[in-house]
């Protein structure tokens, strides 16, 4: 694999690199798709994810009701299969008589976004700092590591309660509160992997042929630790959505008009004893999404991991 990367670098010097990049991307994307097609679980994951994204975007067309439409006379109605339920509200209604199914469909928008944005920021910042710190060590590593230790040592919920109280409730404040500490985990992971990888032979070899440090980090080492980051990141997407639920439990979540799975799970906890569906179905929607993201993540890793091909 070292060879092929070197090959890429050489080609760069001859052809317009952007054009080449684009061509390579399309070719590899097709190639990847070809492999993905033959990986049943990954494909399943992908399909479910696409379904989620599509239903989130097309929510106004799919959802049977307006998710904010209240009907105080029809509160806590059970799903259709339970006694007292009806097909008018397939999954029943919530504490304000809103259609639960519609809220779950709409809830996908905000929840997917919360998960992706919060994890995305965390991965971006954490991986970047982690690889630099792990590769170069020295002052940078010391400072960032100590800072990361400091942040990690600060209990998350206390931090979140404080931040939400200071900035006031709101979507962007929530994303900030969720991702502010999230990067540390990725920083530590990438830094640790970096420490291991940089002692390996292929890195020595790249250095011997005179590749720059940055090139080694981003095109030699990064691909090798990518799958680890991916596994953690996929787990984190769901975790961020769950964290939002914990914040809602403490009374600080997403503004209540916007349906979000986390707040729905938290909001229905008092009614769990009498109306389990309010809290349970949004949670199951979340579990299925996280499961699918992981199936896809695992599949991609299997495909991308060269050691698998040896078998």
């Amino acid at each position: 694999m070292t060879d092929s990367s070197l090959g890429t670098a050489n080609e760069h010097q001859i052809v317009n690199p952007y054009l080449l990049e684009l061509r390579l991307l399309t070719r590899n994307a097709l190639h990847l798709w070809g492999q993905l097609r033959r990986h049943p679980t990954a494909l399943l994951g992908l399909i479910v994810i696409i379904l989620y994204v599509v239903s989130a975007i097309a929510a106004p067309f799919i959802a049977p009701y307006d998710p904010t439409e209240q009907n105080l006379m029809a509160r806590n109605k059970p799903p259709f299969w339970a006694e007292g339920g009806s097909l008018d509200h397939i999954l029943g209604t919530d504490q304000l008589g809103r259609d639960l199914l519609s809220r779950i469909i709409y809830g996908g928008r905000v929840s997917i976004l919360v998960g992706l944005l919060a994890t995305g920021f965390s991965v971006l910042v954490g991986a970047l700092l982690g690889s630099l710190a792990g590769y170069f060590r020295g002052r940078l590593d010391d400072i960032v590591s100590r800072f990361a230790d400091l942040l990690m040592a600060f209990p998350f919920l206390i931090f979140a309660i404080g931040v939400m109280s200071m900035l006031g409730p709101g979507f962007s404040n929530l994303i900030f509160a969720l991702s502010f500490k999230g990067w540390v985990e990725f920083f530590r992971l990438v830094r640790g992997e970096m420490l291991v990888e940089k002692t390996k032979e292929y890195v020595e070899a790249a250095r011997a042929v005179g590749r720059s440090d940055l090139a080694i980090i981003f095109s030699e080492i990064a691909p090798n630790i990518f799958h680890t980051v991916l596994v953690l990141a996929t787990l984190r997407v769901g975790h961020m959505i769950v964290l939002e639920a914990s914040l809602s439990f403490l009374g600080l979540g997403i503004p209540p008009e916007i349906p979000a799975w986390g707040s729905m799970v938290a909001g229905g906890r008092v009614q769990l004893l009498v109306a389990y569906w309010i809290s349970t179905f949004p949670g199951l929607a979340l579990a299925l999404l996280v499961l699918s993201i992981n199936l896809l993540g695992e599949g991609l890793r299997d495909i991308l991991d060269p050691r698998l091909k040896l078998q």
Binding site: G238, I241, A245, S246, V265, A266, R269, L286, N294
Partner: peptide, 10 residues
């Protein structure tokens, strides 16, 4: 995934 996807209080 059920373990991960449901919050503690649930």
């Amino acid at each position: 995934f059920v373990g991960i996807s449901f919050p503690h209080f649930w």
